[in-house]
Nucleic acid binder design. Structure first.
Lengths: 164, 164
DNA sequence: TATTGTTATACTCTATAACTATA
DNA sequence: TATAGTTATAGAGTATAACAATA
């Protein structure tokens, strides 16, 4: 069965655009941001399915790759994760042999985090998948729009950093 | 390999801008979209705190307001919510006297949803708060960027509608 | 047989308090 | 005393199977 074009048969609305009136929601950034993020993550999951990796795990691996030796607290701060919630995430990545908790001589409370050789190899594959995913998005919205939106999103995202 | 030269003695990084290297994440829409959405929702919560209303509840009230008489299934379709998850959401709004489940004569399985008078009054207050929230965002990113980003976000969001 | 609203359930994500071992 | 990592726990959000009433 098709969509159930509730507003009778006008061919004008040919694209079978959603028949609902979203009112003020249509002009509210928060709502659109959430819907867009869900849609983009859906594509992310499709591309990363074969690797059994979630967005948060990918960002953790990338951050450790680009900043070897960071502590757990620092990674948490960088990604906006709570320390207690980060423990099982890291445990899983360590159990799969991608990350190493190295004890630090200077402060025996904390660990310095590193990718293993397997982890480095793995994250390179992930980056290739991520690039493919990103190309699909650019193809959809256009290069110019893609560039333009980044500036705005970085601006918005940084507003939450400020209050810390 | 370099060993944590990050926190040598830098006064150079005066702005205390984040000292982390985000690598490829900086150029990935999914990551930025998530961070931006979290930041925007944080402001939403601040503005809506006094009303004890969450984003999903606000969107439900708005959709019923703009489309009186819709069934639960239709609301779910419009907002991308699973039917079982929608039941407690609606229960709460009904318990607070904002929404009415009206039995429909034509199909006795389904309810037609309407706002009560109190609900209509309440949602108007919410819209005013939402407008205030939106003005804060526009003030931050600029009118032009705000307009530009909407087009792209709607495009992205609609990509998930298509596959249903 | 199919659909509407519902219950039950499970899994993820997120948030907070409190513990331990170090500092 | 303060901090790093950890444990336990509780609350949202999300997903699926299955049921009763109705179509």
């Amino acid at each position: 069965m098709r969509k159930r074009d509730r507003d009778s048969g006008q061919g004008a609305d040919a694209g079978a655009r959603s028949a609902f009136n979203y009112g003020p929601l249509q002009n509210q950034l928060g709502y659109l941001l959430r819907r867009a993020q869900i849609a983009v993550f859906r594509d992310f999951f499709a591309v990363f399915d074969e690797f059994d990796i979630r967005p948060a795990q990918y960002s953790v691996l990338t951050l450790i790759e680009c900043n070897p030796g960071l502590s757990q607290t620092e990674i948490c701060k960088a990604l906006g994760i709570q320390k207690p919630n980060f423990v099982p995430v890291l445990d899983a990545l360590e159990a799969r042999g991608f990350v190493r908790r190295a004890s630090t001589p200077s402060d025996r409370r904390s660990y310095a985090l590193f990718l293993t050789a397997a982890g480095q190899n793995f994250v390179r594959k992930l980056h290739r998948a991520a690039a493919k995913h990103e190309r699909r998005i650019i193809e959809r919205v256009g290069v110019h729009a893609h560039d333009c939106i980044f500036e705005v999103l970085r601006n918005l995202a940084s507003s939450s950093d400020e209050e810390r």
